[in-house]
Design a protein around this nucleic acid. Structure first.
Length: 442
RNA sequence: GUCCCCAUCGUCUAGCCUGGCCUAGGACACCGCCCUUUCAAGGCGACGACGCGGGUUCAAAUCCCGCUGGGGACGCCA
């Protein structure tokens, strides 16, 4: 059994930032790669920030991305006895002392011995800091709660963490925490600090760049596999040119030493591209399942449509989607009874000289056949194109606008077939009537 | 301000540790072409980078130094 033990230890802030998600993912992938344990620990030692719902966000985010944990979640707020025991021991050994503040009360500080602090980071390499820069720091706050740098180490020791994988903002903390390991006489784990994720302006990725939290990306219609693959590749590459990597593959190839030292900008276009790749890799039933919440959100109850028919519609859009959330709007003329005509499309296509007559011929031809298949439609429309001696585009576009309301849709045969003979005829007639009106008033 | 870190196409990156195979490879985006009934998807192609200056060396994207630029950390927050 592997002795590799890692942990993800967020403070419950109410949202899981994309950068934190990547840190969690790297921890998790590393644990799975090594056959070790992934532990979830909630660092809720700040009373003012305590929030139950915020913990749920962490859990939901992790689960949504497909991460599971072997131990926890542990809550630091429930482990005060352990921290106090350690504080008292340090006090007894005179490695720590009480610092009285007339206003805030008494806290406990750890004595920082002089010297040069040094450790080898798996990502950053050798790092060193003069301890003269580290003041005796607080390990127990006046409110009785442990301070971050203390609770973190006590827990990492207690939980036998072998590798501490966290954001680059913690490198100085690591030097501070090394003092605690020393005072405790505890073995020191390996450290790996992750670079930052930046926005397109090169500043740390934040709300003004777009979605920041994992759950926000989910709401926008990114697939868990797509987002996970994308953020994993922000700062890590498996060493060859492959980019679409299913989770199992990423786990197999993951290596902490392949993580880049420099910060990475999040490129939204590439995320969309990658998400589209994953959408296309799904089976139609799987895609429907992913689409269901978005359909409901838009007011379309999925069970309102025959499953087989819905599969046809979804199949038509699978090649077109970048984000799941785009679907309801794009497929609106399949999902609702009526058609909403875009003014521009009507003006550009339907109001053309001869279009009305053309549509009437199409209606007549369709009414003459009871068969409504790809073959018959192709023969029928092809014949009209031929007798009218016009390109097929000249005939497909008016139909498209008439039955969808716009100039963009899946293939015209497929669109007609899935819409069905009745609906197609009804919409064509409606368009003809409308065209008459427009012509009449102009 | 003090300390620390980083630096290859616009962006994500391969290559750097173990100099030569790099006239620097791939991907996204952009542009063009093909496919084509629209939009996509797909295929093909074009554009596009080793931040600058010194070294070391027969040879540097790769090693060293400086500069410039960018970023981070400096709480009884985590």
């Amino acid at each position: 059994m592997s002795t590799t033990r890692v942990r993800f230890a967020p403070s419950p802030t109410g949202e899981m930032h994309i950068g934190n998600a990547r840190t969690a993912l790297y921890n998790w992938m590393f644990a799975r790669h090594e056959g070790g344990a992934f532990i979830l620990r909630i660092e809720d030692t700040d009373r003012a920030r305590h929030d139950e719902a915020a913990v749920q966000v962490v859990v939901d985010s992790l689960q949504w991305l497909g991460m599971d944990w072997d131990e926890g979640p542990f809550f630091q707020s429930e482990r005060l006895a352990l921290y106090n025991e350690k504080v008292e021991a340090l006090l007894a050994e005179d490695k720590a002392y009480v610092d009285e503040d007339p206003e805030r009360g008494a806290c406990v500080r750890l004595r920082v011995p002089p010297g040069i602090s040094h450790f080898d980071d798996i990502v950053l390499g050798s790092t060193r800091v003069d301890r003269a820069e580290i003041n005796d720091f607080v390990i127990r706050k006046a409110d009785g709660f442990p301070a971050y740098n203390f609770a973190c180490v006590v827990d990492d020791v207690d939980m036998k963490i072998s590798h501490v994988i966290r954001g680059v903002g913690h490198t100085k903390n690591t030097h501070t925490q090394l003092v605690v390991y020393e005072a405790l006489g505890a073995p020191i784990p390996r450290f790996a600090h992750m670079p930052l994720i930046l926005g397109t302006d090169g500043k740390p990725y934040s709300k003004r760049h777009g979605s920041v939290s994992v759950l926000d990306f989910s709401k926008e219609g990114y697939l868990r596999q797509g987002l996970a693959n994308f953020i994993a590749l922000l700062g890590w590459a498996p060493g060859n040119d492959e980019e679409i990597l299913p989770m199992e593959e990423m786990i197999r190839r993951f290596d902490l030493s392949d993580i880049k030292k420099s910060d990475a900008q999040l490129n939204p276009e590439k995320l969309d591209w990658m998400n589209g790749k994953y959408i296309r890799s799904l089976s139609v039933p799987e895609l429907i399942e992913e689409l269901t919440p978005f359909l409901s959100e838009a007011g379309y109850a999925v069970d309102r449509y025959p499953q087989a028919w819905l599969e046809q519609v979804v199949a038509l859009y699978q090649e077109n989607l970048k984000r799941l959330a785009e679907f309801p709007d794009k497929a609106v003329y399949f999902l609702t009874e009526g058609v909403v005509y875009e003014e521009k499309a009507v003006k550009k296509v339907l109001q053309k000289e001869g279009t009305k007559a053309l549509l009437e011929k199409i209606v007549a031809a369709l009414e003459n056949t009871s068969e409504f298949t790809h073959a018959t439609l192709e023969a029928l429309l092809g014949k009209i194109a031929e007798t009218e001696s016009i390109g097929f585009g000249k005939i497909a576009q008016p139909i498209r606008v008439a039955i969808t309301g716009g100039t963009v849709s899946p293939g015209i045969y497929d669109t007609m077939l899935v819409l069905g003979r009745e609906v197609v005829l009804e919409r064509l007639k409606k368009a003809i009537a409308m065209t008459t009106e427009i012509n009449g008033t102009s």
